[in-house]
Design a protein around this nucleic acid. Structure first.
Length: 430
RNA sequence: GCGGAUGUAGCUCAGCUGGUUAGAGCGUUGGUUUGUGGUACCAAAUGUCGCCGGUUCGAAUCCGGUCAUCCGCCCCA
């Protein structure tokens, strides 16, 4: 009989138990930080109407990038990030929510693009957002960054330290306006600045797009610093002030690993103010591991009410899988989840063994039985060894009759006979 | 959508200047040892050599096509 394939579809991830435990632990810690910061958990549908997911009309074109399908007359698709669903949710429940509304999502998202290294078709993303109606103080921008920095800090022992770079779209809008750039030139300059670190001919490209004078000015932002533009124009001053105040607030929340980098742009068009990206200190070549910014018209396609947001997204799967693939996470902490393996020598011992098992679990000890009681004892010990149980609790005829256990330390190989109570005490101390 | 590489055992791969019966390691199962694992030794099972076609007396091997996967580009909502 021909066997069916066991490999996952291209672009899909599955982890081994040790990796999964690490993944889950990190996910839990980061979410706990967000909950403590008062972000409520939203678990939104993975499937949305196609019209919610895209503004484009060309079904064939978007089909290559998203997972789309149709039931009856309803075209629908899998969400590709958390923002779209959140916008819809907030606009739809606007009367039931309290603003500023803060929410986080930890959910799987789907993209239909062709997979390559570090880019998956299904992945977990953690989104956190604060939304306001009509207005939302920029102070929240700092809180979002500080909260996310705390979330990363909670998993520092696994991923190492992070740093954050902060940019400001308002600065560039003011800059471009003062340079009298056309809309087209602005767009071109945006793209170039966004790709600045990736391309070698940044300056030459700028000259070509916006002319030599403007190119020199833009380049000065990076060579002389943004502060040198103070007093040039009102809007520029405001943007510079916003950046300075932002950094002060970050500092007062204890965030020290942040710096201003006006080369941070973010690809998405919807950002309008502060933008930021997080990087790993020890693995900068991985690229941004999370980022976000402020968007002024989050939900304009769902509601006439003006909803303003500031938010961030963490490519959680990408981060964890990349680190695990490169063996940069010490997984030893997750290798021995089982404290005790209960080995049952013969079916007469099953009932007694089950009572031992229950007693162990009631005491909070992670215990696994080997219930094929008539298998050779050798296989049972081997099983205990393979699941890396810390102890084997052996139940044979003698043990059952005397109401005791043979407790074998699987690391040292030594063995002793204890009653159940003493066994539990021993296991609790290890 | 474009380019490069790779498809052989459950897994990782070797074999490929065409030549009898298709190889290794790991893993699995059994045994050495039916109340003791990690190490050792012995043995066994497992293949449409991705698929289709061509060349040839003969193809895992050469050629064409096709599909799939990986890597990169494009894109990144």
């Amino acid at each position: 009989m021909e066997l069916k394939p066991t490999k996952t579809l291209s672009g899909f991830i599955e982890l081994l138990p040790v990796q999964q435990r690490c993944f889950d632990e990190c996910a839990m810690r980061m979410q706990r930080v967000l909950k403590t910061a008062g972000f409520c958990h939203l678990d939104l549908p993975a499937i949305e109407r196609a019209e919610v997911l895209t503004d484009k009309d060309n079904w064939d074109e978007i089909e290559t990038q998203m997972f789309l399908f149709q039931k009856g007359d309803t075209k629908m698709g899998l969400r590709y990030d958390g923002t779209v669903g959140l916008s819809r949710y907030v606009a739809g429940h606007i009367n039931d929510l309290v603003f500023p509304f803060r929410a986080y999502q930890f959910a799987r998202n789907y993209r239909g693009e062709r997979p390559q290294r570090g880019r998956y078709r299904e992945f977990y993303q953690m989104d956190l957002d604060i939304m306001g109606i009509d207005s939302l103080s920029e102070n929240y921008d700092a809180e979002i960054v500080a909260t996310l920095a705390d979330a990363y800090k909670s998993v520092k022992e696994f991923i190492g330290p992070v740093n954050v770079r902060v940019g400001n779209r308002r600065f560039w809008n003011a800059m471009f306006a003062s340079l009298n750039l056309s809309a087209e030139q602005q767009r071109a300059a945006f793209v170039l600045i966004d790709k600045k670190d990736k391309i070698s001919d940044f300056y030459e490209g700028l000259v070509e797009e916006v002319g030599e004078n403007a190119a020199n000015e833009i380049n000065n932002v990076f060579s002389n610093g943004y502060s040198s533009f103070v007093g040039r124009a009102e809007a520029l001053d405001a943007a510079i002030k916003e950046l300075d105040e932002f950094m002060v607030l970050l500092g007062s929340m204890g965030i020290k690993n942040a710096k201003i980098d006006l080369g941070i742009m973010r690809g998405h068009a919807y950002y309008t103010g502060i933008v930021f990206e997080f990087f790993l200190d020890n693995f900068p070549e991985l690229g941004a591991i999370g980022g976000g910014g402020r968007y002024e018209d989050l939900a304009s396609k769902f509601s006439k009410t003006k909803i303003i947001g500031v938010g961030a997204a963490v490519g959680f799967s990408r981060l964890m899988v990349a680190l695990m693939d490169e063996n940069r996470i010490d997984l030893s902490k997750f290798e021995r989840p089982i404290k005790a393996a209960v080995l049952v020598m013969g079916s007469e011992q099953v009932a007694f063994s089950m009572s031992v098992l229950a007693a162990l679990r009631n005491s909070g000890i992670t215990a696994v039985p080997y219930l094929d009681a008539n298998k050779k004892f050798k296989n049972q010990v081997e099983f205990a060894d393979k699941i890396k149980a810390r102890f084997s609790l052996i139940v044979g005829e003698n043990e059952r009759k005397n109401n005791v256990l043979s407790v074998k330390d699987m690391l040292s190989g030594t063995q002793q006979t204890l009653d159940i109570k003493s066994t539990i005490e021993l296991l609790k101390t290890v």
